Amino acid sequence: MSQYILEARGLIKQFGGHLAVGGVDLRIERGHIHALIGPNGAGKTTVFNLLTKFLQPTAGTITYRGNDITRARAAEVARMGIVRSFQISAIFPHLTVLDNLRLALQRKLGTALHFWRNERSLDVLNERAEELIAAVGLTDYTHAVAADLSYGRRRALEIATTLSLEPELLLLDEPMAGLGREDIGTVSNLIATVGERYTVLMVEHNLSVVAALSNRITVMARGKVLAEGAYAEVSKDPEVRAAYMGAAHD
């Protein structure tokens, strides 16, 4: 078995005459937290969407666990174990934390669209739901309405619903977006804990978080990879420094 769970080779994405991603090679090692960073407009989100099949590449290949998924659909790769979060919270704000998890877990029972069933039919999901709630530190908020949670706890709930799909590879899109300092610490600790069990790829702008969490970092600019390696190594790269310094003028 390869040490790399996901590999992209020569990944290209064009939108009309605009080259958004120009030949990106990316390898995600099993058991690592890998960060994809770069200034605005670098192509990070496009790569993220290509890897999770929300976009199809113009050229290049993507393999997951050694299988070619280049032309697979988003739902197919999710079933294979590639699960992503989004910058915009994907929880149900008017449901409780427990009900959010029970709804997410219904997929495994094949009852996700059986809205007419008695609520008691979902009680079989309670034990696993409570395990996931505890895993993200929300036990005290099990019966709280999601809309009443802080931003950090909402993000924790979203990660819990993502974990309900039992992914092998978890992709986090800007997990710190919109969070205050205290919530950033909470979610950072959660991602570190999640990274002990799952492989994680995250797009993140907060470089302090990236430095603290990541085993490996890929830096992009203008649709291409500028540098890759450990944070201490990459942060000293002259091209990386120039890209970030120039970002304020883009």
Rank of each mutant, 00 (worst) to 15 (best):
S2M: 07
S2W: 03
Q3N: 08
Y4Q: 09
Y4P: 01
G10K: 09
F15W: 11
H18L: 15
L19E: 14
L19K: 11
A20H: 04
G23R: 05
V24T: 03
D25V: 04
D25L: 04
I28D: 00
R30N: 12
G31S: 08
L36A: 09
I37C: 01
G38D: 06
G38P: 02
N40E: 10
N40K: 02
A42G: 03
T46A: 05
L50D: 02
L51E: 05
T52A: 04
K53A: 15
Q56D: 14
Q56T: 14
T58M: 08
G60D: 10
T61L: 06
I62S: 02
I62D: 03
A72E: 12
A74F: 04
A75N: 13
E76C: 02
R79Q: 15
G81S: 10
I82N: 02
V83E: 09
R84I: 12
I88S: 13
H94I: 00
H94G: 01
V97Q: 00
N100A: 08
L101T: 06
R102M: 15
A104H: 04
A104T: 12
Q106H: 12
L109W: 09
H114W: 09
N118L: 10
A129L: 10
A134V: 03
G137R: 00
D140V: 06
Y141D: 07
T142A: 13
D148S: 11
G152M: 02
R153Y: 10
A156G: 04
A160H: 05
E168I: 13
E168A: 15
L170I: 15
L171H: 01
D173K: 01
D173R: 00
A177G: 05
A177H: 01
L179R: 00
G180D: 13
E182S: 14
T186E: 09
S188C: 11
L190Q: 04
L190R: 01
I191A: 02
V194H: 05
E196K: 14
R197E: 14
T199H: 03
L201M: 14
H205L: 02
L207C: 05
S208Q: 13
V209A: 13
V210I: 09
A212M: 06
A212T: 13
R216W: 08
M220W: 13
A221N: 13
K224A: 15
K224T: 15
G229N: 10
S235W: 07
K236W: 07
D237H: 12
A242E: 12
A247W: 10
A248Q: 05
A248Y: 07
H249C: 00
H249K: 09
D250F: 04
D250S: 10
